[in-house]
Amino acid sequence: MTRIFEPFQYGFMIEALLVAALIGAVCAVLSCYLVLEGWSLMGDAISHAVLPGIVLAYIVGAPLALGAFLSGLVCAGSTGWIKTHSRVKEDTVMGIVFTGLFALGLVMFSRVQTDVHLNHILFGSLLGIERSDMIQATVTASIALCVMLALRKDLLLYCFDQNHAKVVGMNTTFLHYLLLSVLSATIVAALQAVGIILTVAMLITPGCIAYLISDRFDRMLLIAVISAVFSALVGTYVSYFLDGATGSCIVLTQALLFVLAMVLAPKHGLLAARRIARASPVTVDLP
């Protein structure tokens, strides 16, 4: 019995749980917008593209988070620019830009001696996170969360119908870059705690889970946040006993929830679809 509560005796475990939950919540809110806007892989791209910024910031002695943030914006900005100025498709452009930046980061990284561990950036180290990093991550994540909640209706309209947003006098360019900045900031906060791959997963899966379950945006936000926080807590907790990579445990918990939602969702789930098909056997959807 005491074994079950063992993780909670350690201060570092409690802190890790809290940080994981907070970052999970922020990423979940963002993921709802990303899923609806069709930007799911923007998270992937930006989180890889921050590497050269981090290395450069290290060389000039600036805060790593600042470098990462700017580098993420460069990735998003140049993807947009190249897309509008050439005939190459957006996903291809994204692939070229983020791998180019990541490779640049790798080359720079192998040229400088740093005490930044590449593995920490890639895979995160939730349990070994430093105090200052933790505070930085918490502050960034909180600001991102506040901005998104305050502007959630504007961002929603931006994702739904940009033309209408412009016609009622909203500044859509501002909203576009705001969403990208919030995304970059969140990625920077999440990277230090949980690593690139987990960040990418956290920026996609909760939104998809919620999108399967609900047809209303506010409910979607709520479901996404709950599922993300739940998986963050369960994943971290389980990883203590397994003694395995924390980030991976969180991602796998999310994946499990996704599969559950996919099968059981009340209206859009596989079982529901089968039930509807059985109830009205005349209407057959041709592929």
């Binding site: 892989l41 791959i197 990418v200 998809c208 399967l212 991976s248």
Partner: peptide, 27 residues
């Protein structure tokens, strides 16, 4: 089988696979 867009599906699947791989190596 679901109403989720292709790019999101790709993201979910590959991160899950990758996470499983990393977990295996760490275990």
């Amino acid at each position: 089988r679901t109403r989720i867009r292709e790019d999101a599906v790709i993201g979910i699947v590959f991160t899950t696979f990758f996470a499983a791989g990393v977990l295996m190596i760490s275990l």
